[in-house]
Design a protein around this nucleic acid. Structure first.
Length: 787
DNA sequence: GAGCACTGC
């Protein structure tokens, strides 16, 4: 075991070195905590720390730390739950002045005092599902341990590595980040203990990490694992992590989470319209309940904005009618696509009384699920819970993801209610009956792995060295159809060979933080001499929508968008927007005047430079063709290399398109910037909203499909129909051209190989397709005449 | 002629 990462100032004679980390007792930890010198920095404890320590000493809660250390030292894997209480109320046990409560937050610190990762050149990792949590918790823990932030205690999230190699031993990180590390270090050998926090959220990354860690634990006896979760899942994890079989569950440590009691009220009868009922309830609280802020949960942007308007109207009416008994009210919307500055408004104080001594004001926050876990707002006393949220569901049969408004789970309902009791006792109004709560709501929200497209995950698993994806030890097995769809896609992309093994190309694809289609397109793009452009397009496709469309300025916003739109296709328009943004020196005012989200564009720039670093690492050239006439054609060919499975052909009239092989009918989305409706298109998304829509589209030529995706467009296996006939016509045209003297090229030989290795892609020849430019000119002329 | 729940790499 190497000590190279241990701080240099730690000598062999250090008393800490003599500790047996696995047998540490609470007395030893207390001694270390109370000593003059901080054992982690070797510097004197700060005055502030000593003051806190004095207060701690008065509290008889150290017994729990002892219990934890006993369990932790004796076992390789344990589950820790924070009991949020159940049933109608939660108990208030100790006053909130308690300085050294044992909470789930403190567990990683106890782990450090016991594990002493810095003495053996290792680290303790603690994962979080969200970036903000990783950052803020790391900061707090550094303070509590009396060590400098971003030194001994640091964090790693995408774009930000706030750790110091050799010094940091307590590392907070997002779950996705640890998964990335595992791709290149399958044993996670840098860590002596790994803590998975918020495991009950069951994010895709946490689920995969759980499977990996269980495997690593069998090989690395020196690795300890702590799973932290809400109560409801505990038994499941205890059984899952048992290396000796589910009848011998791993030990559980319970931490009481202290919050204020929340009174939960149900409606007597079901509410037919939850939005209307929600507004009515907020109004009722405002009229009849004690002062205190309100949090209302709705499902999406439109609902929220609408509710805010109505609540404000009603409250203003009330204020005018009866200024002596009700105070003023502000209503603040909260959802993730709001610019950060507007999100900050939730921390504004409630408005003051209209006249001195009059009834106090009230703040109402109308929010999506974001306020359920990601953002905490102090001062909330009333929660209004209609019982719904929007959930992503994936249909592997037609390969479509959509958002559905669905009832929440009991666990979610409990979490929402808890938001009312953070500062003082509160009330939660559930807009459904108690009977429905008991009988209709599921215990838990379905884990993400059951509801999502697994293409990315399967590629990650392959890169993680998992040989048998179907029999991998999942906490919950994903749907076999989803796995099959993912394997199929990755095979067509040549990331996996016919035996399901990772190819050289697939290995590089996995290194990019992108969907496999986009990674493939980016890696292929130098062959078309347009990697510079594809890089931009990929970055733009990786960030949220850049187009702003404020409800009262839609026409202006649409006009601004039209100015930046290129008729060639939405992908080209995205590139144009990015280039204009850069040419205008990243000016926020320029963004604002053009109804563009400066925030999203900044993100795109960030993503672009991150991807560029990966490209450089793998020596993928950044090039732009000198022949401008061909640039757009080449970009579209590169699109085909990644997205050949997302192609549709025009069918009949009215902009209806039929997707290749999946046979789904969809319309061009109204946001689409094409000025014609071409026969063949390639699309980025097929979305199911009020109708099936095809979004972000660009015209392609059928002969490119045959040429760059010969396996998928193998006409001998293609289902009969108009689509096949159209492709046959294209094939015949191409054969004629080839015979006419362009000479045989790599494409004909490639048609038979299943998974072209990376170097084979060098064989793609760009110079062959000059024949199309004449056709395109004709088309342009046609377009112009129609205007 | 319409939306984008929320994360994460």
């Amino acid at each position: 075991m190497s000590n190279s990462r241990a701080p240099a100032n730690l000598g062999k004679n250090d008393p800490l070195f003599g500790w047996l980390p696995r047998n540490v007792t609470s007395e030893q930890v207390l001694k270390a905590m109370e000593g003059d010198v901080n054992p982690f920095t070797k510097r004197p404890h700060s005055a502030q720390y000593k003051k806190i320590l004095e207060a701690r000493k008065k509290l008889p809660v150290f017994g729990q730390m002892d219990d934890f250390l006993k369990i932790f030292t004796k076992n390789q894997i344990i589950v820790v739950v924070g009991e949020t209480g159940s049933g109608k109320t939660t108990q208030l046990t100790t006053p909130s002045t308690a300085v050294y409560r044992v909470t789930t937050r403190r567990i990683p610190q106890f782990v450090c005092y016991s594990d002493l990762p810095h003495t053996k050149g290792k680290m303790v990792a603690c994962t979080q599902p969200r970036r903000v949590a990783a950052m803020s918790v790391a900061k707090r823990v550094a303070d509590e341990m009396d060590v400098p932030f971003e030194k001994q205690v640091g964090y790693v999230i995408r774009f930000e590595d706030m750790t110091e190699p050799g010094t940091t031993f307590m590392k907070y990180m997002t779950d996705g980040m640890l998964l990335r590390e595992a791709m290149n270090d399958h044993e996670l050998s840098r860590y002596s203990t790994i803590i998975l926090d918020e495991a009950h959220e069951r994010t895709l990354a946490t689920d995969i990490l759980m499977g990996l860690l269980k495997g690593i634990a069998r090989r690395r006896f020196d690795l300890k694992i702590v799973i932290m979760s809400a109560t409801l899942d505990a038994q499941k994890f205890q059984r899952y992590f048992s290396l000796e079989g589910p009848e011998k569950p791993v030990p559980l440590f319970k931490v009481p989470d202290r919050t204020h009691p929340v009174e939960v009220l149900y409606t007597q009868t079901p509410e037919p319209d939850y939005c209307e009922a929600a507004i009515r309830t907020v109004s009722m609280i405002h009229r009849t309940e004690e002062p205190g802020d309100i949090l209302l949960f709705l499902t999406g942007e439109e609902e929220i904005e609408d509710a805010c308007r109505k609540i404000k109207l009603e409250a203003d009416d009330l204020l005018n009618q009866d200024p002596d008994s009700v105070g003023p009210l502000i209503c603040i919307p909260l959802y993730s696509s709001l610019p950060p500055q507007q999100q900050q408004r939730i921390f504004d104080p409630a408005p003051p009384p209209r006249v001195p001594g009059g009834p106090p004001g009230r703040k109402v926050i109308v929010s999506t699920n974001i306020a359920e876990t990601s953002l905490t707002i102090d001062g909330i006393v009333y929660v209004v819970d209609p019982g719904f949220f929007k959930q992503k569901v994936y249909n592997p049969r037609i390969r479509v993801e959509s958002q559905l408004i669905t009832p929440i789970s009991k666990a979610s309902a409990q979490q929402r209610a808890g938001r009312a009791g953070r500062t003082r006792p509160g009330k939660c109004f559930r807009l459904y009956t108690e009977k429905d709560f008991m009988t209709e709501l599921e215990e838990q929200t379905h884990p993400e792995i059951l509801r999502t497209n697994l293409a990315n995950t399967v590629l990650e698993l392959a890169k993680l060295g998992v040989k048998d994806l179907v029999h991998f030890d999942y906490v919950d097995d994903p749907a076999p159809e989803s796995l099959m769809r993912a394997l199929e896609l990755l095979n067509y992309l040549a990331a996996l060979d016919d035996e399901g093994n990772l190819t050289a190309l697939g290995s590089i694809m996995a290194e990019f933080p992108l969907d496999p289609q986009m990674a493939k397109m980016l890696i292929s793009s130098p062959e078309f001499r347009c990697s510079n452009e594809i890089l931009t397009i990929v970055a733009m496709l990786s960030v949220p929508n850049v187009w702003l469309r404020p409800p009262n300025q839609r026409k202006k916003a649409d006009a601004a968008k039209a100015m930046l739109t290129l008729p060639g296709g939405d992908h080209l328009t995205l590139m144009n927007v990015y280039n204009s943004y850069v040419n205008n020196k990243h000016d926020k005012n320029w963004c604002w005047n053009n109804y563009l989200s400066g925030h999203a564009l900044m993100q795109a720039e960030n993503v672009r430079s991150q991807l560029l670093r990966t490209m450089e690492w793998y020596e993928i050239d950044l090039v732009t063709t000198q022949d401008e006439r061909r640039l757009w054609t080449n970009i579209r060919k590169a699109l085909v290399c990644g997205f050949f499975m997302q192609v549709a052909r025009k069918e009949g009239k009215k902009n209806a398109y039929l997707t290749v092989k999946d046979n789904q009918v969809g319309q061009l989305h109204p946001s689409c910037g094409l000025d014609t409706s071409p026969e063949w298109i390639i699309f980025n998304e097929f979305v199911l909203t009020t109708r099936p829509y095809i979004r972000t589209v660009t015209e392609v030529r059928p002969e490119w499909l045959l040429e760059y995706a010969p396996n998928y467009y193998d006409l001998s296996t293609f289902p009969n129909g108009e689509m096949k006939r159209a492709l046959m016509r294209a094939l015949n045209k191409r054969t004629l051209k080839t015979v006419a003297g362009m000479g045989s090229t790599a494409s004909s030989s490639r048609a038979d190989s299943t998974a072209p290795p990376v170097q084979d892609m060098q064989a793609l020849n760009v110079s062959r397709n000059s024949g199309h430019s004449a056709e395109q000119k004709k088309k342009k002329k046609k377009r112009r005449s129609r205007r």
